[in-house]
Amino acid sequence: MRRIIDNDYLTVISRLVVGVTFIWASVYKIADPLSFANAIWNYHLAPSSLINITSLLMPWVELLAGIGLILGLFYRGSILLINLMTILFLIALGSAVVRGLDIDCGCFKAGGSGKGSALEGFLRDIPLLALTLQLWFSRSRKWMIDRA
């Protein structure tokens, strides 16, 4: 198991998959912070005074941590933030499913086409968490700027 987790190739593929996912997810949120704020509000979890601040801050954390993951720059910090965000998304999506909220996940796109339900988002987040946890525990440090 340890050898699988530490595998250089598996680790670099995980970095690419997770990194691209987070970068991709950040794009619409950066382009349209109001739609993302509305998506956060739909979850009925965050205090309303913090919604707009969150919608301005979080997409950039997603983007920078995603880039950091791929380049291996600020790598441990990036992987920590990505794990925390993935767990946060899992909790938010799971609670939306449990509460029966019929909401758009707000993960990759705001409303319109490509609308994903909270349940779809939740199910998609589980394999994502498996990858981010693998990266957290992997000791592989190949092909990273941090090491150079």
């Binding site: 801050l57 954390v61 790598y75 441990r76 910090g77 990036s78 920590l80 933030l81």
Partner: peptide
């Protein structure tokens, strides 16, 4: 180190 780097990323994002 992870926490310190995460803090930097948060500050730059902000």
């Amino acid at each position: 180190m992870a926490i310190k780097q995460a803090f930097y990323i948060l500050v730059i994002s902000a």
